[in-house]
Amino acid sequence: MIGHTVSTLRPDLAEIASWIEPGARVLDLGCGDGSLIDFLQRAKGCSGYGVEIADERVIACARRGVDVIQRDIEAGLDMFAGSRFDVVVLSMAIQATQHTERVLREMSQIGAECIVSFPNFGHWTHTVALLRGRMPISQEMPYRWYNTPNLHLSTPADFEDLLATLGLLVTRRSFMAQGRAIHFMPGSRSTQAIYRFRSR
């Protein structure tokens, strides 16, 4: 079995991985096929678990030797209440959560630090689409208005407002488009935003 290298990780996951200290204990919510934990275990000596709801992804995690807990993160993180993690990750899934505030609050209670990535609804192409009278469709949000799982789309500014409301402190932020970092006018030029935050 060939492990993931940084170059084969999804770009936002590679960026997230670069923020995580070697040896950290990590919880990856909505971990998909477990590629982030797999990489962190192999390359950085981290330990941790993925949390995933879909059967086929749970099996994919087991196949690559990643410990996975099958659970709907919306049903609550009670099982983890007695545990503490160095980092809790939620990548490209916050926009599909129903109880978004609760998820963020629970993450901050079990993780010393939390990392969340999400599609930036404020990307200029979305603005153009709306000006043309159409709902935006992009690589990060490839759905039609009627079949999208995304309930809670936001811009980086919106997200930062919510973190402030919840009393959570941003410790690092990064913006990307096409897998590359965006430094200039990220609010309209980035397609993905990544935030690290913790309780105050």
């Binding site: 330990s47 059967d55 410990d67 996975v68 099982m79």
Partner: peptide, 21 residues
Amino acid sequence: TREIVAALLANRLRVSYAEID
């Protein structure tokens, strides 16, 4: 079973858990 998983997580043990529908 979730009670058991929670106890194992609290002990920092390696655990996988599947809930088969």
